[in-house]
Amino acid sequence: MHFVVCLKQVPDTSEVRIDPITNTLMREGVPSIINPYDMHGLEEAIHLKEKLGGKVTIVCMGPPQAKEALKKAMSFGADRAVLLSDRAFGGSDSLATAYILSSAIQKIHETEPIDLVFTGKEAIDGDTAQTGPGIAQRLGFPQLTYTIKVRELTDTTVTVERKTESGRQVVQAQLPALLTVEKELNDLSYATLPNMMKAAVYEPEMWNFNSLPFDVRKMGLKGSPTSVSRIFAPPGRIGGEIMDGMKDPVATAASVVQKIFQQNIIMYKPQAKGGNQ
């Protein structure tokens, strides 16, 4: 089995602050991490490789510094890592990124046929959740999104549980397929020392614009129809009200109920039937 995992190096968004005056992201000095969702895709690929045999290839697009992320990813037991890095790729939105990544994966697929591609459900810096599906579409692979469990992997099919707004779905697809994954998929394991050492000296393969017959019109700012019109910080939430229920529980309960209806949190409609269960 050949597994490909797409990784993105992202700023640790828990460290990003928003400048209250200019409303821009203050990214300076913010450490980079591997997109947490992607890590769970990697973990699953490694796990399946250990169970069924095969190979794990990591594909990443980013600046040369993203090498660090790839080296770290290698320590979990991957076999090969490719970094797509070129000024021409800079400024790509999710459409252009999907084009670049799918072109690279296609090339890998031609020499070493791929069975499963993993991507995170989204990246924590953009939250678009578009890149994974975009890659699947271009490769002509079926896409199973929001995967929370890989139930079965045979030579020809993959069966997964996916998270939906109303519950879980069990779906199956023919291989090769692409999964976008949630964090619930698995727990990250702790790398072994031999793998840490392999990663410490590993040099990822560097691919650039010339490595593939790329169409320059489909990448970078030119190939990106997305435009960011404005960035703003959502207004801070007002703290809730705390009522003391010890002194007079009955009166407090009455006042809670009153507030709930006053603020239309629950609307009083005697005829209405229950909504979603």
Binding site: Y190, A191, T192, L193, P194, M196, M197, A200, V201
Partner: peptide, 30 residues
């Protein structure tokens, strides 16, 4: 070579001689 994110938990001895380290990772002796 620099191995990161790895804690050395013990030294390894052969008689009185320190001959290596044991880290907190699987297969963690050097």
């Amino acid at each position: 070579m620099i191995i990161t994110e790895t804690l050395v938990e013990n030294l390894l001895y052969k008689g009185d001689n320190v001959v290596g380290v044991r880290t907190g990772r699987a297969e963690g002796d050097l």
